[in-house]
Design a protein around this nucleic acid. Structure first.
Lengths: 156, 156
DNA sequence: CCCTAAAATTTCAAGCTTAAAATATTTCAG
DNA sequence: CTGAAATATTTTAAGCTTGAAATTTTAGGG
């Protein structure tokens, strides 16, 4: 009545590897399409969208360091992206009253308007790319991802 | 008896967006850890591992263009990575008999040995990072990802 | 007060990635 | 044959990303 000849642990390890490759392929495919849409339809990039998205959630602005830890990217990285957004008039840096080292990044009115536009299209793109997932599929997939994410949070 | 006030379509769209963000977070977390392991424990990078992995599956070598379409990255990209692997003695380019334009990239013996080592560790890392997924979870997750991937294949 | 450690940010060097242009070679219609 | 189109690859310019070094400012013990 053994289900297989190989040790269960080894088989599970290979199955996890296969599902990881599938996970990677799914995400890369979607991400590539989103990047293409952002570039071709809006002349922008995913990192810029991500920063705008973060700033949109914090209307009072975010310190540069909070922004980088929120997005899980390096400090130097957000410096460059906020520079670009600032040049384009979409964001600005505001001095923090009590601390001359720190600066808060915020969206400008133009930045907020641009983000609203982008965010709607982004949701539409994702909705189309995930058309194969019913509401039930979404919930089940979400639960499985929680199994992965729970482990990641432990490690911090 | 309505399940919610919002139109079903809108709710599903938001649910898909949420699961997309969760998918991205899961994959980014794992990928960051894999990159860190490759760098700190083996002094290499994920792109180099990906190329070695592709070449390991084709012992007779892969044309540069086949390599880039297999990995879904640009031609110019694989040129640079194969250059690096060649400098390190892990890969080499072989002329294709009938076509002086083309070259086949192959692993050297050293490259094959290095890859075997990396691949085993890679599988172990993934096995640990996905410890939260039982065999049943893996199968269910895999099925849901197929819903996403099926759609992606249609678009090619 | 001073001066060292910590904190916030930017700068820097190196590597990855892409799209597009450039090169070299092959194919094939006429 | 010949030259235009197609194919295989490399080069290039621009942007993203990181980790580490550098800069500026703050905080706190002595």
């Amino acid at each position: 009545m053994k289900p297989s000849q190989a040790p269960a642990g080894e088989t599970l390890s290979k199955a996890r590897l296969r599902v990881w490759l599938k996970l990677l392929k799914s995400v890369n495919g979607i991400e590539t399409e989103i990047r293409r849409n952002l570039r071709e339809e809006h002349g922008t990039t995913l990192p810029r969208f991500d920063v705008m998205s973060a700033l949109a959630r914090f209307p009072d602005g975010l310190k540069m360091s909070d922004l980088s830890s929120y997005l899980k990217v390096s400090n130097g990285n957000v410096t460059g992206i906020v520079d670009k957004l600032t040049e384009e008039g979409l964001a600005l840096r505001v001095a923090v009253p009590g601390d001359r080292r720190a600066q808060v990044a915020r969206l400008t009115a133009k930045g907020r308007a641009a983000f609203e536009e982008l965010a709607q299209h982004h949701e539409d793109w994702i909705n189309t790319l995930l058309e194969g997932l019913s509401a039930g599929n979404v919930d089940a997939l979400s639960a499985h991802l929680d199994c992965i994410l729970d482990r990641q949070m432990e490690e911090d």
